[in-house]
Design a protein around this nucleic acid. Sequence first.
DNA 1: GGAGTTCGCGAACGCTGTTCTCGAACTATA
DNA 2: TATAGTTCGAGAACAGCGTTCGCGAACTCC
Lengths: 219, 219
Amino acid sequence: MTDVIWLRPERAATGRPAAHDRAEITAAAISVADRGGLDAVSMRSIAVELGTGAASLYRYVSSRDDLLDLMIDATAAECRLEPPTGDPVADLVAVAEGLHEVMMRHPWLPELAVTRPALGPGGIAVLDHVLAVLADHPGDATAKLEVFALLNALVATFARNELAAADQSRRAVAYLSHVAAGGERPRISALFDELSTADPDPRERRATALAALLSGLLG
Amino acid sequence: MTDVIWLRPERAATGRPAAHDRAEITAAAISVADRGGLDAVSMRSIAVELGTGAASLYRYVSSRDDLLDLMIDATAAECRLEPPTGDPVADLVAVAEGLHEVMMRHPWLPELAVTRPALGPGGIAVLDHVLAVLADHPGDATAKLEVFALLNALVATFARNELAAADQSRRAVAYLSHVAAGGERPRISALFDELSTADPDPRERRATALAALLSGLLG
DNA sequence: GGAGTTCGCGAACGCTGTTCTCGAACTATA
DNA sequence: TATAGTTCGAGAACAGCGTTCGCGAACTCC
């Protein structure tokens, strides 16, 4: 019995047949998270969503963390993967765009993906695609794995900034505005004055920034 | 009474004097986290560390999340900030190196900093420094704030990769090695074969990658 | 039909963040 | 020096959490 969930057999061949499976439980957890955020994802709430008891879930999953890993990997599997065009930077930006879409569909995902980088079948598919994009590119295995990790982190960062802006998180800027009004730290004051208008086209801004970052990284 | 902690007055002028202050409580929380990780940071464990009752902490902090914000900002204040040299990329890499040092000193910080970007006095100081570095650089306020956010995210990503490698996290690569051994997905197999040797100099690898990323971003 | 195995899940445990409450400790005023 | 007003410390309690135990029910295989 390995400690990583994707290597454990899903169902027993004998005995009483199971009423659910991992995919169904994962879907229920994602549904709960979509509706109430990550904090709403408790074993009991998922059990209610499925109409079973909380203890029953442990027949399919050995801990709540396992379930979070399944959620992450399930969303990775949602990511659209177009065939490579030959332009590594453009192809990676396309992957990033796909990941971004998934993250906007599941607002809890950026926070989760950045705290526990789980690699299941879905994540492996994305990694494999990135490797295909980088096939003709120089760089050792560590560098390519680094590109993959950075791609995820960058997309999550952009997604979180966008979500925070939409979610009118005054909390984040409350102290910033206080410092800006204070008058010391003139650079902060100038920054804050300029910050009034909302971003007209976050998508293009994100794409150009990502392309710039990636073309720098790939040399 | 604002909902951001740095705008709330610390002590009352009248009444029974407080036995502790925010800085002391923050230091206790950081000490607990350094010793036992983020999961060990509970109100009760911090109270034990201080020799008081758990309920007493709510005289200084309105929630555990407030305390986490204080921890983040306290570590930001630990960051060394050298005067700018005129080379923006080199200066930003220097900031990143400083943040990286702090994160290696507090292994729980990358995870925390990436989930809740708290901006208190310490974080403002770092932001102000980044703005000074970028003073002569074109780009609007949003772009410069973006550079700051990305810098934090990138450093946290590098730090977490390094900590995961040191902490022999077989869990992360367990399924990867299984897929590699499976034979399907030849690119994964090739990647895994090449991945055997450990990185000789992570510091230089990190610095060059960061410089490449940032010089790409800054144009 | 019996043996063997797995599943569902109510009940319980220990832990968590947080609130209530009230006596104690202090300052300011008279 | 007495009193009023305010804040602090913290024990007790509450709701909710992840997780484990144990047992009756449900199923497969021989």
